Computed example of a mutant assay.
Amino acid sequence: MSNSEAWINGEVSHLNNNYVNLYNNEIIGCIGIYSVTKHMKSISSAKALLILPMVFQNDLLSYMGRSNVDVKSIEQLILRKPDLLSNFNERFYSLLQVSVNSILILNALNFLTINPDGKIELLGERDFIPSYEKEVIGKRAFQIINVSYKVAKLLEDKVENLYLQLRVKL
């Protein structure tokens, strides 16, 4: 059976050691990265790569989406809900390609620019998100957009501290 036949029949969860995941794709990634960057105006490339492992984790997305949750830092989140970030390193690397592709798509479509120093900045007044209605963009995109300001707040810390606290092995 070929890889594509196995995929169609749902018999493989990965090909060539890369996770195949239609749920966590570049379009949803663009929405996540754009939404968080919109709150920050600019973001380092290193911080931008931390966005998707956060917003693509359903339990974290659900927790952060609660109106009574106000997390001020990564340290506070780890103390309150360590299980939400326990496998962050694995998620970081499994989503690295989607993160880079999403950033490059937004750049190619002129929604953001990547400066020579690696800083990512939004361009212009155009909005990447066509609508903010749940019925139009879907439940998942709607949830990601709604927690984006909280994720932006988490990313205000120094990049070195973020990678250390999230236990990303470089």
Results as ranks from 00 to 15, higher is better:
Glu156Leu: 11
Phe56Asp: 05
Ala46Asp: 12
Phe56Arg: 09
Ser94His: 06
Asn110Tyr: 09
Gln57Arg: 11
Tyr23Phe: 15
Pro82Ser: 12
Leu162Ala: 02
Gly118Phe: 08
Ser131His: 14
Trp7Asn: 02
Gln97Met: 12
Ala152Tyr: 05
Ala108Glu: 11
Lys47Gln: 05
Glu133Asp: 13
Gly10Tyr: 03
Gly10Ala: 07
Glu133Leu: 13
Val98His: 03
Glu5Cys: 10
Ile27Phe: 15
Arg80Asp: 07
Gln97Lys: 11
Asn161Met: 09
Leu77Ala: 02
Ile43Asn: 02
Ile78Gln: 00
Ile144Pro: 01
Ser67Val: 13
Leu96Ile: 15
Asn89His: 10
Met1Ala: 08
Arg91Asp: 07
Arg66Leu: 14
Asn146Arg: 13
Leu122Gln: 07
Ser35Arg: 02
Val151Met: 06
Asn89Phe: 10
Glu121Ser: 14
Asn58Trp: 08
Leu22Ala: 14
Ile78Cys: 03
Val12Glu: 13
Ala108Arg: 15
Leu60Arg: 01
Val136Arg: 08
Asp157Ala: 14
Ser4Asp: 10
Val20Arg: 10
Leu122Phe: 09
Ile105Tyr: 00
Ser62Gly: 05
Lys139Val: 10
Asn17Lys: 15
Asn101Met: 15
Ser35Glu: 09
Ser67Cys: 08
Ser148Cys: 05
Leu95Asn: 04
Val55Thr: 09
Val147His: 00
Val55Arg: 01
Asn18Met: 11
Leu166Glu: 07
Pro130Ser: 06
Leu122Thr: 09
Tyr132Asp: 07
Ile120Gln: 01
Gln143Cys: 12
Thr113His: 06
Val151Asp: 04
Leu112Phe: 07
Asn68Pro: 05
Ile27Thr: 13
Ile145Pro: 00
Lys134Gln: 14
Glu121Cys: 10
Glu26His: 10
Asp83Ala: 09
Ile28Trp: 03
Asn107Glu: 14
Lys47Trp: 00
Asn17Thr: 11
Ile74Phe: 03
Leu95Glu: 04
Phe142Arg: 00
Phe128Asp: 01
Tyr63Thr: 12
Leu162Asn: 03
Pro130Lys: 07
Ser94Val: 09
Lys41Ile: 08
Ala152Pro: 00
Leu95Pro: 00
Ile74Met: 15
Met64Asn: 09
Ala48His: 02
Ile78Thr: 03
Asn89Ile: 09
Ser131Gln: 15
Lys158Cys: 13
Pro130Gln: 05
Lys153Ser: 02
Asn87Ala: 15
Asp127Asn: 15
Ser148Phe: 06
Leu104Ala: 11
Thr113Ala: 12
Val20Pro: 00
Val136Ala: 11
Arg66Pro: 08
Gln143Ala: 15
Val36Trp: 00
